[in-house]
Simulated scan of single mutants.
Amino acid sequence: MVAENARNQNTAHSLDELLNDVPKNQTIGDNLIRAWNIINNDKYETIVCSVSGGSDSDIMVDICVRVDMHHKIRYVCFNTGLEYRATKDHIKYLEKKYRIKIELFEAWQHGMTIPKACTTYGQPFLNKTASEFISRLQKHNFKWEDKTFEELYAEYPKCKSALMWWCNLKPGKRNNISWNKWLKEFLIANPPAFTISNKCCEKSKKNISHKIKCDLMIIGVRKAEGGARASSYKNCYSQKDGETDEYRPLFWYTNDDKQCYEEYYGIKHSKCYTEYGLKRTGCCGCPCGRNLEFELEVLKRHEPNLHTAVCNVFKDSYEYTREYRAFCNEMNREQKIYYQITIDDFIK
């Protein structure tokens, strides 16, 4: 691996200069050319790059610094109220490494922290889509019944979209409750006793970012990540009439492309990756995380105060998530037994 700072990290003065030092990787080469052309386009006078301190964000910042010939980019990051200490330290490291200013937006000043949002609106559960529709159903005092859409719509006439989700009638598999195996059965058997909501991310980050005026917003989304956020985009660049355009420099990067860039340019990631062993650093301690239990163990070991905080903020959701996972395991076990009995019946 190339030692950190071994390669020139200064901004290139021309496209030829930029391409004089690139790895033999088609995706990275094409990406740098595209980044140069978009960021240095005269139509963009104000550009904002949203920095998270995550591994994708690290590469995005490196690309931006290399191609921003006119130094138009304003770097910003958001403190949601639940951030890793290692991430905060890494933001300072990036400022020093690239000689840039990363403007910190505090949720408590500009919006609402995650703890406050969870207290006010409810805690997230499973994923953003499920949290949104469960929240809507809760607001209508839904009884968690397995009835037809027609029957339920007659009873809850102002809750059509959430009822369509509940009855698996929305277009796209991902937009229905069946996308999460056994969720409907679980909710019927174990109705939530606490308020569920997906407002925490919206109030602590999204709403604040929308207040930042610019011509172009640069964000770190990769198609290879999967998930609802990545699948909502078709390409790396969105031009919006009358609105802020959006550029996603890493959109086409595979994991191999990402590793190639890291090794060639000597990208150093935060301790969340290098010491804690985390693979991703989204919202800290989020109940929707795939590796929730591992992340909680990491927090307990490396950042105990933050571990205490998330266990208080997301207490109800953590317990409910564990109940749901145990329910799924039991249902899968029973289903396996049922299918085995069915097969045995055929071979007697």
Rank of each mutant, 00 (worst) to 15 (best):
L163S: 08
E145L: 13
Q109T: 12
A154C: 10
E150H: 04
P157G: 03
F149I: 04
W182A: 12
K116F: 03
E185R: 07
I134M: 01
E151H: 03
I177Q: 01
I114D: 03
G172M: 09
P115R: 07
T113P: 02
I114M: 06
I114Q: 02
Q123C: 13
K139Y: 01
F149P: 05
C167I: 04
N176A: 12
C118R: 03
L169E: 13
S135W: 00
R136A: 13
F142H: 02
L163V: 08
F149T: 08
Q109I: 06
L169C: 08
P115S: 07
K139V: 02
S178H: 12
F149D: 07
S131C: 03
W108F: 13
N176C: 11
A162I: 04
L183F: 05
K160P: 06
Y121P: 10
E155K: 13
K181R: 15
Y156D: 03
M164G: 05
N168H: 13
Q123G: 08
K181C: 06
W144S: 09
N127C: 11
E151C: 04
E185L: 06
K147I: 07
F125V: 07
P157C: 05
S131W: 01
G122P: 04
L169R: 15
P115C: 09
P115L: 10
Y153T: 09
T113Q: 03
A130E: 05
K170I: 08
K139M: 11
T113D: 05
E155N: 06
A130D: 06
C159W: 00
A154Q: 15
L152N: 02
T120V: 12
N180S: 15
T129K: 09
F186Q: 12
K116T: 12
L152E: 08
A130P: 02
